[in-house]
């Protein structure tokens, strides 16, 4: 024990831990708790039955009341362990509860009715995952439809964005033409126009183009981002021009240079941008809220938000749906968090 402790508290210099180190680790572990516990709690709760969710104080793990089906009773009867009184130690099934008294029967002897005070029993439970919360989503709610809408928007918007942004970045980094500075200033200018301040006219333009209440109305307006152009341009500037000249010598067309040389060489930057775009589109909320008003066009985020109004009491489905919405992003995070971190640090967010 002592040696383990020594090993754990050893530092690289061989010195003992200073009190500031203790404070640092304390702070960090508090952070781990604060950041992860709510998510863990959400996932655990999503596996609880509606009855279990109503329980107060809540249990940490999902439990289900054990039941038994007896002849002569249509519904399964809940089982209780008797902790006091004359029937102490027995396991009885409850027929009904009247005030503080419960009418119970012994499963071994179903004919005899027993009276037990409710102070003298406790629920017989076992650990069990309520997976029906999840299967319900596919049956009763149109979860797959929302999932498809979200996926379609995310994939299409990301592809269009990567294509247009990389083309623009190529032109801005590899050509010397009149008006280049003006275009660069225009791109900087769009940085100052976030969607949130042009909602009304954007709504008019999108309706005029016939994209109101259509998934394309969400995809197209978000496709051109100044951030993407900047990120890719900065990377393409580092690609030596000699490669392009060599390709031109070999009679490669400009379009070929773009997609056979520049695109593959900027793959790292494109990957970063792709991850960012997927994240933005998947989590997008305000603009889809305005454009998509019919529930068959809802994205997952919209569906979640509208369900929390309708299903105020039905947390079980809502929690399961939240977990499924969170899952793709959590997966992306686990595998690609290094790239996301560098991408965000280099672009300064959106």
């Amino acid at each position: 024990m002592g040696r383990t402790w020594e090993f754990l508290t050893a530092t690289r210099g061989g010195a003992r831990l200073h009190w500031t180190d203790w404070a640092s680790y304390g702070y960090l572990f508090l952070g781990v708790f604060l950041m992860f516990f709510p998510v863990v709690w959400l996932v655990l709760s999503s596996f609880k039955t509606e009855a279990d969710l109503q329980r107060y104080p809540p249990t940490f793990l999902p439990y289900q009341q054990q039941t038994i089906t007896l002849d002569g009773h249509a519904d399964p009867l809940p089982l209780f362990r008797i902790t006091g009184g004359e029937h102490e130690g027995m396991i009885l099934a409850q027929l009904r509860r009247v005030g503080l008294q419960a009418q119970m029967i012994d499963p071994a002897n179903p004919e005899e009715r027993l009276q037990v005070s409710i102070r003298d029993y406790e629920r017989l439970e076992r650990f069990s995952l309520a997976t029906e919360n999840y299967s319900d989503l596919f049956g009763r709610f149109n979860f797959l439809l929302y999932f498809w809408n979200s996926t379609f928007i995310t994939v299409m918007a990301t592809l269009i964005m990567l294509l247009t942004n990389s083309m623009a970045a190529f032109a801005l980094s590899k050509y010397r033409f009149r008006g280049r500075t003006v275009v660069l200033l225009l791109v900087i200018g769009t940085l100052m126009i976030p969607q949130t301040v042009v909602l009304v006219p954007l709504f008019l333009i999108v309706s005029e183009l016939g994209m109101f209440n259509s998934l394309w109305g969400v995809i197209i307006p978000g496709a051109a981002t100044p951030t993407g152009v900047f990120l890719l341009r900065q990377y393409m500037l580092t690609i030596p021009d000699e490669i392009l000249d060599a390709a031109r010598m070999d009679k490669a067309s400009e379009w070929k240079i773009y997609w056979r040389i520049i695109l593959p060489l900027s793959a790292p930057a494109i990957a970063v941008l792709a991850i960012l775009a997927i994240m933005w589109r998947w989590n997008d909320f305000l603009w889809p809220l305005i454009v998509l008003t019919q529930s068959e066009n809802f994205t997952l985020q919209l569906a979640l938000n509208s369900f929390q109004g309708e299903l105020q009491t039905q947390w079980s489905s809502l929690l399961a749906m939240t977990v499924l919405t969170l899952l793709p992003i959590a997966m992306v995070f686990m595998f690609l968090q290094k790239y996301i971190a560098t991408g965000i640090a280099s672009t300064g967010g959106k």
Partner: peptide, 30 residues
């Protein structure tokens, strides 16, 4: 070659114009 740059820029500029600059002007009108 050099004027081809505008072709590469066109889709992006069209999107910027339609969904960023035009809305600013229309916003004043609204």
């Amino acid at each position: 070659i050099n004027r081809l740059a505008w072709v590469f820029l066109a889709p992006n500029l069209l999107l910027f114009g339609l969904f960023a600059f035009l809305p600013v002007i229309l916003n004043v009108a609204y």
